[in-house]
């Protein structure tokens, strides 16, 4: 098992480093001069290239070193929890990230819980009514919500529930998962990626229902619901869990947009501010957090996979 986990790590870690390298290179060669961005609100002529003060700041920050040295230094410090300081306000990026990341994570986790609780039963219902109206309705609905962008759904629901129907308070900021304010953001976050789970669960149930052991269970006179819950559901979980990596990617992307619409101070809000202020160090830090979260989910999926499906455990051993 340990060897298996290590193999997965070997697959993912070079990827994260490569992407960080690409992102760092883009910022390094493409973006503006960090010193000029830092002092853009002050007397800028003091901080123009050639001015001794400018050169001093540059030297002090180590910006005169070769690109690869700076990248290596950044990675090394990052592994020790130091993400540098924000260009605009000089605060440590690590602290800003530490405040924002839990919010984004809790949105993603709460939304994936909603997706699992609502999506899997919907997928099962669709499969049991294959090609009937319930199936068509669920699949059509899933595809419909999959089609609507997060930043379209969010404001439309806001207009509907807060303005026209006046049912909910206007969501603003973040007060935890179990707050009235979180109803609309979490619903919107869950609606789009739910399609992935519904489809996966449906096709998995359809596959399972034709298995011999289901026929045996039915033949020995088990009630249909016992057959489904006891025998059909467990093999259905495996493909659904594998889908969670993709779901997480979608949830994170959706969460970024949601945070901007509802003013939730998570990673998405930080990215938006980073764009507005041209603040590379904040953007780099945010990119790393998102990459790390996606990688972690995929690793978790890879690890749970053989636990859920014993057949894979033996093939893994065989492969090793």
């Amino acid at each position: 098992m340990l060897q298996y986990i290590l193999l997965r790590l070997v697959r993912w870690i070079p990827g994260v480093i490569l992407l960080m390298f690409i992102v760092y290179a883009l910022m390094f060669f493409g973006g503006g001069d960090p010193v000029q961005i830092m002092f853009s609100r002050e007397a800028t002529d003091l901080f123009m290239p050639g001015n001794p003060r400018y050169e001093a700041v540059k030297e002090q920050l180590g910006l005169n070193r070769p690109f690869l040295v700076q990248f290596g230094d950044y990675l090394w410090k990052m592994l020790h929890g130091d993400f540098g300081m924000a260009l605009t306000d000089g605060r440590p990026v690590a602290r800003t990230l530490a405040a924002a990341t839990p919010i984004t994570i809790s949105i993603a986790l709460a939304a994936s819980a909603i997706i699992a609780i609502v999506g899997i039963p919907l997928g099962v219902i669709a499969a049991l009514n294959q090609n009937h109206w319930a199936d068509n309705l669920i699949l059509g609905g899933a595809l419909f919500f999959w089609g609507i962008p997060t930043f379209v759904m969010a404001p439309l629901l806001m207009v509907l529930f807060c303005l026209e129907l006046n049912l909910l308070p206007v969501p603003r900021g973040w007060h935890g998962v179990f707050d009235v304010n979180s109803i609309i953001p979490l619903t919107v976050a869950a609606l789009r990626p739910m399609a992935l789970v519904i489809r996966q669960a449906r096709s998995a149930v359809l596959d399972v229902l034709s298995e011999d052991y289901i026929r045996t269970a039915r033949a020995k006179g088990l009630p249909e619901w016992v057959t489904i819950i006891k025998h059909a559901l467990r093999p259905v979980l495996t493909p659904v869990v594998t889908q969670m990596g993709v779901v997480m990617t979608n949830l994170l992307a959706g969460s970024l947009l949601l945070e901007i619409v509802f003013g939730i101070p998570g990673i998405g809000k930080l990215i938006r501010d980073g764009i507005l202020n041209n603040d590379y160090s904040v953007l780099l830090g945010c990119t790393f957090v998102v990459l790390a979260l996606v990688t972690l989910t995929n690793l978790l999926v890879d690890i749970t996979y053989p636990i859920l499906d014993p057949r894979l455990r033996s093939t893994q051993k065989g492969a090793e």
Binding site: L19, G30, A253, V294
Partner: peptide, 22 residues
């Protein structure tokens, strides 16, 4: 796979911001 696994939006933001000046 790497390109597919990570959110388009984040990498896109970085590219859009840093490619604009050049």
């Amino acid at each position: 796979d790497l390109n597919m696994a990570f959110p388009n939006l984040v990498l896109g933001v970085v590219m859009a911001v840093s490619l604009r000046p050049p």
